[in-house]
């Protein structure tokens, strides 16, 4: 109850939360009721929105709405997996780096430096030629491998600053042990930070995977990136009638991202004990 009240307290955040719910529904529930349109209708290509096709049709005369409905799931699964994997790596390495210091810290920081210095897109292109990126999990792993270094640095600096807090010093003085310090003193105060970073990692993953799909480096079945890619390669951009073919997936992506980002505002309130108890 309390969580729900907090969720509703920030209006932008709550709107974001509803948006996320809407997209989850669209991507995971709606496909059960709306069949994927695979039929080619040469007499109905690039139609504008109408009662029959609420988002119009694409270059093959397929219903864009059905493509959007079916094209969201992979995007979201990849985003979530990428966010989860990269955040987990970042929390573990960032905390180790900050808490152990010394050569461990130097090593981890050196690796992230090198990693951040490599241009990511060409690297992805090279990776894509070596490994066939045709599964959701594999795509997520590759994206996570690229996303963790900057996150690790963020987590490290957060732990470093928390470690200096007086209540952490007090726990040291009371000899409560490292396990207590990490699990009871540090982590609870990092949860909102981690959750928000997870969401931002997801938004990053949405864009990079769509980019990869659009460039054809990743071959997944129908998804929002594929719709854009096909519209692009099949000449939709040359036809003024075809704007819905591009606009629909772009809008879906943008709104999903906007929902995620807005939702972080609510996350902040949910994890902040100060706000939790003063409502």
């Amino acid at each position: 109850m309390k969580t729900l009240r907090l969720l509703m307290h920030n209006k932008v955040g709550f709107a974001g939360f509803l948006g996320v719910l809407f997209f989850l529904f669209l991507a995971f529930v709606a496909p059960l009721f709306i069949p994927l349109d695979t039929e080619t209708r040469v007499d109905q290509i690039y139609q504008l929105p109408s009662a029959e096709h609420i988002l119009g049709t694409d270059f093959q005369g397929r219903d864009i709405f059905s493509l959007i409905v079916h094209g969201g799931r992979d995007v979201m699964v990849v985003a979530f997996l990428t966010g989860l994997i990269s955040t987990t790596i970042a929390v573990i390495l960032g905390s180790l780096s900050a808490l152990l210091g010394g050569w461990v810290d130097s090593l981890i920081m050196a690796v992230t430096d090198v990693w951040l210095a490599i241009p990511q897109l060409p690297l992805l292109a090279v990776v894509a030629t070596m490994i066939k990126l045709d599964s959701v999990v594999l795509t997520a792993v590759v994206l996570a491998a690229l996303a963790w270094p900057s996150l690790t640095r963020a987590i490290r600096s957060q732990v470093l600053s928390l470690r200096q807090r007086e209540y952490v010093q007090a726990a040291q003085l009371l000899d409560l042990g490292n396990r207590h310090i990490i699990s009871s003193e540090l982590l609870p105060n990092m949860m909102s930070y981690i959750a928000i970073n997870l969401v931002f990692a997801m938004t990053g993953a949405v864009y990079s995977q769509v980019l990869l799909v659009f460039l054809g480096l990743v071959t997944l079945s129908n998804n929002w990136g594929v719709i854009i890619n096909l519209a692009w390669t099949r000449g939709a951009i040359f036809s003024s009638m075809a704007f819905m073919n591009i606009l629909a997936p772009v809008l879906a992506l943008a709104l999903f991202q906007l929902s995620l980002v807005s939702f972080t505002r609510s996350l902040e309130e949910i994890f902040n004990p100060r706000l939790r108890t003063s409502v």
Partner: peptide, 23 residues
């Protein structure tokens, strides 16, 4: 050292920073 560690305690200046806000 363990005995010393518990025997000598410090009270900080800032009552706003010395208690964990999450507990």
């Amino acid at each position: 050292f363990r005995e010393y560690r518990l025997a000598v305690q410090l009270i900080h200046q800032d009552p706003y920073a010395s208690l964990n806000p999450a507990h």
